[in-house]
Design a binder for these strands. Structure first.
Ligand code: MN
Ligand code: MN
Ligand code: MN
Ligand code: MN
Lengths: 217, 217
DNA sequence: ATTATTTTTTAGACTTGTCTAAAAATTATT
DNA sequence: AATAATTTTTAGACAAGTCTAAAAAATAAT
């Protein structure tokens, strides 16, 4: 069994690993958990002792198969709870993260399986992120950033890269939600902004926004 | 804000207070939390510092108004989660306690208010215990122990005194659940057992059972 | 190839919550 | 009232998790 702190480190390493081949650096872990590198080193040793990570001094860290499965299970719980909060308790997608950070640590296999069933076995959370199954497997969809679409291309908004409250509330304000169809009408060269069509309306989108919205063609 | 440990001590004191006038002893707290008296003394000092309990050395401890409200809120969360687990996630009443012990520490007022609404503002948990409202008030019902009924008296089963898994599963096996009507047909003097009628069937009940079942006349 | 910079680890300290063993206070017994 | 038994508190220690400051290793720059 793992402590709350150990689980948070495992999850951080899991997220950092998806998106880089090499071992995850002590600094990267510390930054992601808003703690100090020395604390990360201490915890890495404990995790290595418990055989959820491979660790050689100065070489960074990688999850073992057991570690991957354990981490995926925490992510699974986090995302299922997010779905529950949005679908059943009327939370908006920018309010769920903090609460899910707590709920993901509740230990009860039956609870999470029944929750999964209650929600109809959802495949994605409110931010479009995939929900791992019981074995930790995720079926990845081929989504690309809106910024990478070319003129006149079209697709459905299926996820966000940045899931901060600020960004999510901004999207709400602009009427951009998951499931909506977006067409790129223009790409402005001098500021990299996009003119898009959504809900039969024209909307100008900055490069920053376009770099944080996932589209499925 | 209170730590998980502080919350558990507060809840223990809250439960011990209902059922005795005087201050709660260090030993009683320690026993109820399965810890040592010295640990209880340490924690009592912290709680006193935070002004949730009154404490004078060797005099035992009592909750302040603030402490009562804080403790009642934890009990509120515990019992609402128990209702959720039974009514929505198909847990049986003997499986919920351990999970509710964890869930009661989740910090989110919106979560608990929405959960309350989702469940239709329940007044009692699956064991018949009252759910405090947001201000910590409970409306007590006048329930008595089955053992205190006299011959030919009748009432509805509304709660359990012992809520251990063992006792609850025993009740399930005998077909005794909350809401059922029970009539006392005989009271045997030599072993204090009861002959009751439930679901139009006769059933013999030991003194121990009768002392742990609450009835509303 | 040295030197400088950055990253990582170690050493020592602190907090929270717990424990054991001993001292102090309270309560019960004679 | 004095002694015995019990309860409560204190003193000191320990594990988990964190921090700062300093040392060691790795990487970058000259
Ligand atoms: Mn989240
Ligand atoms: Mn999410
Ligand atoms: Mn319970
Ligand atoms: Mn209960």
């Amino acid at each position: 069994m793992f402590t709350l702190s150990e689980e948070n480190y495992l999850k951080a390493i899991y997220h950092l690993e998806s998106g880089s081949e090499k071992g995850i650096s002590t600094n990267a872990i510390a930054k992601s958990l808003e703690t100090k590198a020395s604390s990360a080193t201490d915890m890495i040793k404990k995790l290595s002792e418990k055989e959820v990570v491979f660790y050689k001094k100065y070489q960074g860290v990688t999850l073992t198969d057991f570690g991957k499965k354990t981490a995926a299970n925490i992510v699974r719980k986090h995302r299922l709870w997010e779905v529950f909060l949005v679908e059943r308790l009327n939370f908006s997608w920018d309010e769920v993260h903090e609460v899910a950070e707590q709920l993901e640590h509740i230990k009860s296999p039956k609870l999470i399986n029944q929750l999964d069933a209650l929600l109809g076995f959802p495949t994605h959370d409110p931010h479009g992120d995939p929900i791992p199954d019981k074995d930790g497997n995720i079926n990845a969809v081929d989504k690309i950033l809106l910024a990478n679409l070319t003129k006149n291309e079209r697709g459905v908004c299926v996820g966000v890269h940045d899931s901060s409250s600020e960004f999510l509330r901004f999207l709400d304000k602009k009427g951009i939600t998951l499931g909506k169809e977006i067409t790129v009408l223009e790409k402005e060269d001098f500021d990299d902004s996009l003119l898009i069509e959504i809900d039969a309306e024209k909307l100008s989108i900055s490069k920053k926004i376009a770099n944080n919205l996932y589209i499925q063609k």
